[in-house]
Structures are given as C-alpha cells and as structure tokens.
C-alpha cells in the first residue's frame, strides 16, 4: 500500500488544530464567586494576604514535608457584622501541564471547612471536583497525616492532581498554623 507524503503531512498538521478548537470549559469559580460559595453568609471578604519570610518557608517546608514554591499567601477573612466566620485561602499547585487553582475555607480555629476547585486545565483528572473526594478534607488540621492512600483516597486517573492538592492543603494548614503562632 502506498501513501503520499502530502497526505501524511496534511493529516499531522490538521489533527491538533481541529481538535483543540473543541477544548472544554475549565474555569469553575471567579474569586468573588468562590468566596460567596464558601461563606454565603459573609458580607465582607477582607484581604489579609501575606508573604512568608525565607526562614518561614523553610519551617513550613520542613514541618509539612512539602515544597513551598511561593512565599505569597492569598488570604481573605470572611466577616459578617464584625464577626469572623473563617478564612478563604486561594492556592495553586502543579497539574501535569498547568497550575490547578483551588480555594480552601478554614474555620476560625484553622480546620478545613470546605475546598473548591476554581480552575482545572488538565486533560484528565477533573474527578477531583467530585464533592465526596473534596469532603475528605473537611475537619483536617495541620497535624493530620494528609497523604494520598493514607487518610485521603486516590482517584485512579487523577493521581497527580490528588497528590498535589493534598500536599497543597497540608502546606496551607501548616502555613496558617505558623502564622497564628507568630
């Protein structure tokens, strides 16, 4: 059977272009939307973002046993009528190709209340948006194990995302604990 180079070349060039035009939507929440999703009763979201010092980054990394890529901590205090309802932390972790952006709602005493996936751009693995999987984090604190295949179940086909989100939550909880102590 004979094929022509022209056919082969055109086929190789056209395939990704045709299919990339059908990319799925991957932005699930804006900042404002996620804040109100996590604390619907809050009337004010006060920006309380801060940055870790080099020593603090090392401390968090050592304590949480995860890499601290960025010193910046994007944090909002959720307030209703001068009452602190909790915190919202916006965080990013590595996906296979791009960053996964997610939000963690914390209680005033730094336990996880809920997490939401805000942006997911990967080919596979968006099963981490499953409410049952995300609910495993509820109530977790800095001292908990927080490891996939231990106290957090893995999702087959989404292992990298599961591991990185879990490590991200552990890093955030450890950072918040350190910030509270200092």
């Amino acid at each position: 059977m004979k094929l022509t180079r022209r056919t082969l070349t055109l086929g190789m060039a056209a395939t990704p272009v045709a299919l990339s035009s059908t990319a799925r939507a991957t932005d699930y929440f804006s900042l404002d939307e996620v804040n109100h999703q996590l604390f619907p009763e809050a009337t004010v979201f006060e920006d309380a973002s801060f940055s870790l010092s080099k020593d603090q980054k090392k401390t968090v990394s050592k304590k949480a046993r995860v890499r601290v890529r960025s010193a910046k901590m994007t944090l909002f205090n959720a307030i209703d009528a001068d009452k602190l309802l909790g915190f919202v932390v916006i965080d990013e972790v590595y996906g296979k190709h791009e960053f996964i952006t997610y939000a963690i709602a914390l209680t005033p005493d730094y336990a996880v209340n809920q997490i939401e996936i805000m942006r997911y751009l990967e080919t596979y693995g968006d099963e981490i948006r499953n409410p049952a999987w995300r609910a495993q984090f509820n109530g977790k604190r800095a001292g908990d194990v927080l490891a996939v295949k231990k106290d957090i179940a893995n999702i087959s086909g989404a292992t990298l995302s599961c591991v990185h989100i879990t490590e991200g939550v552990k890093r955030v909880l450890t950072t918040m604990e350190l910030a509270h102590e200092s």
Binding site: T15, P16, L19, S20, T22, A23, R24, T26, K96, H97, L121, E122, T123
Partner: peptide, 8 residues
C-alpha cells in the same frame, strides 16, 4: 508541549 487536548 502539552495542552489539555493535544501534545507534541
């Protein structure tokens, strides 16, 4: 290069 739908 790896994207959501294709790679090279």
């Amino acid at each position: 290069y790896g994207d959501k739908r294709w790679y090279a």
